[in-house]
Design a protein around this nucleic acid. Structure first.
Lengths: 240, 240
DNA sequence: TATAAATGTGATATAATCGTTACATACAGT
DNA sequence: ACTGTATGTAACGATTATATCACATTTATA
């Protein structure tokens, strides 16, 4: 457990800021603080933190603008913090290149898990998967060479589109993919933005890979946003 | 052109033997001679030639027996020489692990081309393909990562089985694959040995990838034996 | 709890794929 | 040229994949 990564917190609300700061320091991270978007840009360039935790509800600049301008020159992990109500904002953030988002209010372990996932992921995206040509989480295995998906060693027999979908989610495991992004990836940029077809496919996939399709353990729904593949690392959801 | 590879000729007919010897020496190979199957085994073990050119019509032992016993301990390239009429024999030879066959009578350039292909192929089978993840011959490209086949840059839209077929032939480019072998590879070992299904698939593939399906430039038919994918290296067929 | 929005899922129609058949064509040997 | 064998190919039906619809269920929030 060698961590001493710098994390930049961009958050105007003092209470939340202190809370996050305490949690992250206790977890062994170096913590940088910024109370506004304009400060944040300076700190990012001068300190090059390992990860940015960015609140979208800033007083001065729109958080999305900060996100956009960082992404113009850097791929550093950015996790966005947003209010539960602003679903559209989450989608915009992910589309602009955010690695993940956390909804207020959030629990300690969820925060830490998301940060770990984001840092691990942008560190030369998944060396293990690259080495073995396989993605594994729980009893689910995606074999990228054979183009097959197994649950408990059994080939679940996905169709072409179903495989593409699972394969895509596996490559971005632990991160949320928006409906729009997924649809464009699978059906091409000319496909309309309606997500009904995605829902039907997902139902069929879950019937094949999940023990109880109503309570998926592998592909989670992120309401109003998209889907997320379980990452192997368990993310328990103790919400304060 | 650094060649000084040793080639063992196993051939009882003196005229043919002399002809081959002359041709190979002129092409810069070291040549070993054996007039019978029993001699051949000894020379193979003592001299470890780069390639064996094996006539199946030997007086003492059946050529196939020689082939079989070499294959029990070595993967060295073996090219079989056989009479035009003995189609069944060719199939047996390929099934027993021969790398290629030449039909008597054969021309100089055909002989040399087959030998070059066989030697190149068993030298850590195709490093170029391994590096790029692609197989290219003429305007045809097989992209093994994307699982797509292109002709002149255009995706030809193969179905699953069609892709498997082309992909298989590409991996063994330049070598003949018997009907039986192909069928077992694509449809599994339980499939019957009838090659009609293969013919239909091949017709559909050729309609998609060949300019003139009746005169294929990419996938050749080896009458009575199987199919062969063009290898990039042109094998002109000047038959004396 | 009531309500609206989002998501899940069975049913259905359309399209693509696949294996089979029947016949056409090419080729070798007589 | 005739004959038999091997290969190519169009056409058919069965199966499977796909997209769309309608409605059920879940979720978020008042």
């Amino acid at each position: 457990m060698e961590k001493k990564e710098k994390i930049l917190i961009v958050e105007d609300d003092k209470r939340i800021r202190n809370y996050i700061e305490t949690v992250l320091k206790a977890a062994g991270y170096d913590v940088l603080i910024s109370k506004s978007g304009s400060d944040a840009m300076g700190l990012v360039t001068s300190h090059c933190p390992e990860l940015v935790l960015l609140d979208l509800g800033l007083p001065d600049i729109d958080g999305l603008e900060v996100l956009k301008s960082i992404r113009e020159w850097s791929h550093m992990p950015i996790v966005v913090v947003s209010a539960r109500t602003d679903e559209g904002e989450k989608v915009s953030a992910l589309d602009l290149g955010a690695d993940d988002y956390i909804t207020k209010p959030f629990g300690t372990s969820e925060l830490l898990a998301r940060i770990r996932t984001a840092i691990r992921h942008t560190r030369s995206s998944n060396p293990e998967m690259f080495r073995s040509g396989k993605f594994v989480t729980g009893e689910l295995t995606i074999d990228y060479e054979k183009r097959r998906v197994y649950v408990a060693g059994r080939d679940v027999g996905l169709t072409q589109n179903e495989y593409k979908l699972v394969s895509l989610l596996g490559k971005y495991a632990g991160r949320v993919l928006t409906y729009d992004f997924i649809i464009k990836e699978i059906w091409g940029p000319n496909m309309n933005t309606d997500n009904r077809i995605l829902r039907v496919n997902m139902a069929n996939i879950r019937r094949k890979i999940e023990k109880k399709p109503a309570e998926p353990q592998y592909i989670y729904t992120e309401v109003g946003v998209g889907y997320r593949m379980e990452d192997g690392e368990s993310v328990s959801d103790d919400q304060d």
